[in-house]
C-alpha cells in the first residue's frame, strides 16, 4: 500500500505563465483542446457551452489532465465520464490514476461540481493502491484543490486501511487530505501480537 501517487494531476500552466494576457493564453489552450482527438467513447458530451466561456472551458480541459494529450477531454456538462492518467515514460502505457464520475458541471470561477467521484490510483504493477469515493465535490483545477462538505471514503487496494469522514479538502500539490469531521479509520494489521493482555 503506497500513498505516493497523487490523486489529482497539477495542471501544466507553463503556457499561461509565458503569456502576458491570461485570457489569451486560455483561448490558446482552448484551441489546442478542440484540436485534440478523443480516443475513447466512454465520455458522452451533452452540450458544449463551455467552449464559449474561456475560463470554464480551460478549467474542464485542465481538469481531465492537460498533461496527457491522450486523455479524454469532456467539455461542458459531462456524464459518466472516465479519465485515465498514465505514468511517465518508460511506463507510459500503464494507468497511474483513473478518475471517474457520474456528472461534472461547470461552476463560476472555473470550478467543477463533480458527482459520484471515484478516484483510483495504481502501482506500476497494476495493483490498486487507493480508492477514494465521494458523492459530491467541488474541484478547482487551477489551484489543484478539491473539497466537499459531504461524506468521503478512502480505502487501500489491499483492504487493510479504510478511512471515512465528513467534509474534506484535498491539496494536490502536497498530496495531502484533510478530513474535517467524524474521522474514522480502520487499520487491519497483519500478524499483530496478542500480547499485552
Amino acid at each position: 500500500m503506497k500513498f505516493k501517487a497523487a490523486i489529482w494531476q497539477r495542471p501544466d500552466l507553463n503556457g499561461a505563465r509565458l503569456c502576458r494576457r491570461p485570457a489569451a493564453a486560455i483561448r490558446k489552450l482552448l484551441r489546442l483542446t478542440l484540436r485534440a482527438q478523443p480516443r475513447s467513447a466512454k465520455i458522452r458530451i451533452r452540450a458544449l457551452p463551455a467552449i464559449f466561456n474561456p475560463a470554464v472551458g480551460a478549467a474542464i480541459f485542465l481538469f481531465v489532465g492537460m498533461n496527457d494529450p491522450a486523455q479524454q477531454l469532456p467539455v461542458g456538462h459531462a456524464t459518466d465520464f472516465t479519465s485515465n492518467q498514465y505514468f511517465e515514460p518508460p511506463h507510459g502505457q500503464q494507468v497511474k490514476m483513473k478518475l471517474s464520475g457520474a456528472e461534472a458541471l461547470p461552476l463560476p470561477g472555473g470550478l467543477l461540481d463533480v458527482r459520484q467521484l471515484r478516484v483510483e490510483t495504481f502501482a506500476l504493477d497494476g495493483k490498486t493502491e487507493v480508492v477514494v469515493r465521494a458523492p459530491q465535490c467541488t474541484y478547482a483545477p487551477l489551484d489543484g484543490v478539491a473539497n466537499s462538505a459531504g461524506h468521503m471514503e478512502l480505502h487501500s487496494g489491499d483492504g487493510r486501511l479504510h478511512v471515512e469522514g465528513d467534509g474534506f479538502l484535498w491539496r494536490q500539490t502536497s498530496s495531502s487530505l484533510t478530513i474535517s469531521n467524524h474521522v474514522r479509520t480502520l487499520i487491519d494489521m497483519p500478524g499483530a501480537t496478542m500480547s499485552g493482555t
Binding site: F3, V163, S175, I179
Partner: peptide
C-alpha cells in the same frame, strides 16, 4: 484497530 477523531490530516507522500 479503529481510530476515531474530530479531524485528521493524511500526508500521502
Amino acid at each position: 484497530t479503529e481510530i476515531n477523531s474530530d479531524a485528521a490530516d493524511f500526508h500521502m507522500n
